[in-house]
Amino acid sequence: MNVLETFGLGVRYGQTWAVSDCTLAIPEGRIVALAGSNGAGKTTLLHCAVGLTEATCGTVGLLGDLPAGSLDALERIAFVAQDAPLYRHLSVNEMVEVAANLNRRFDRPFASARLRALDIPVKRRVGKLSGGQQAQLALTLALARHPHLLMLDEPLARLDPVARHDVMALVMTMAAEEGVSVVFSSHVVSELERVADYLVLMAQGRLQLVGPIEDILAEHTVLNGPADEAERVGEHLCVVHAEKAARRVQLLVRHDRPIETPIGWEVDAPSLDELVLAYLRDPSLVGRSGPVAVAATAAGELAQ
């Protein structure tokens, strides 16, 4: 079963397309990192999945084939928006009460046990809690619904290192215990590496890379060799990124099967950081439309 599936999804705000031509299928049981620069369309994509934003064209399906925004879908997913939306003037206890009454499925003992474990003062007003505590509270309310799919928009953005660790640890524990699939957006790539096993990379509203991180890493290689051979070697490969130095050149290439090392060249495996940065630097690299497109772009770059 796919937890999230889109086909030809596009969202237009006035004249601009926030998301366009977005087709993906995320399988169950994954921890998905939705990455991209600011304004890449991450939030719009999430909002579409939850049903907060209507698609201009294309389709979105959740957990098999439930339409986004339908009651069936909403019951099985949980979403925590970027700013951890809570009623600031209510006390923590009242906030839990509200959530319990607004949801058909809500595990009250779970929520109160967790708030106790977190040392969150339940009588205090939500607005008086620290940023970390507010994030924990929002996450607790989301998890108390025992969702199949948990979507988090920039969950770590406002948190200190301890709170980050604790929030991620809780999410990972729920993934281990209940098999929750998780999609979370972030623009800090180093944060994702330990946690995510599936990557969706966006730039300017389009998908650049989609797939299991292991596969994506295996499909890319760094080649290091003499600069004057760059064009000859690059000609037969899909060069994602080329970096020239004196006499040497470094090529990040994409390939669907193992490549032969050119004589006199060194090969290395790229890190996820390095890979994502290379794609983010050049939004025109659209991995999905195939190696040919990538090759064409990169060949032009090399010729310059």
């Binding site: 595990d107 003992p109 779970f110 046990a113 967790r114 474990a117 977190l118 040392d119 924990q136 998890l143 025992h146 301890v162 660790h165 604790d166 640890a169 809780l170 524990t173 729920m174 215990e177």
Partner: peptide, 27 residues
């Protein structure tokens, strides 16, 4: 676990007493 924050199971059975095995871990 006191400050670490882990969920209790549905229905009151102890679910996760995480970190208990390794104690002070980084924090």
């Amino acid at each position: 676990v006191i400050k670490g924050s882990y969920p209790r199971a549905v229905g009151g059975a102890p679910l996760v007493d995480a970190l208990a095995f390794c104690g002070p871990w980084r924090y």
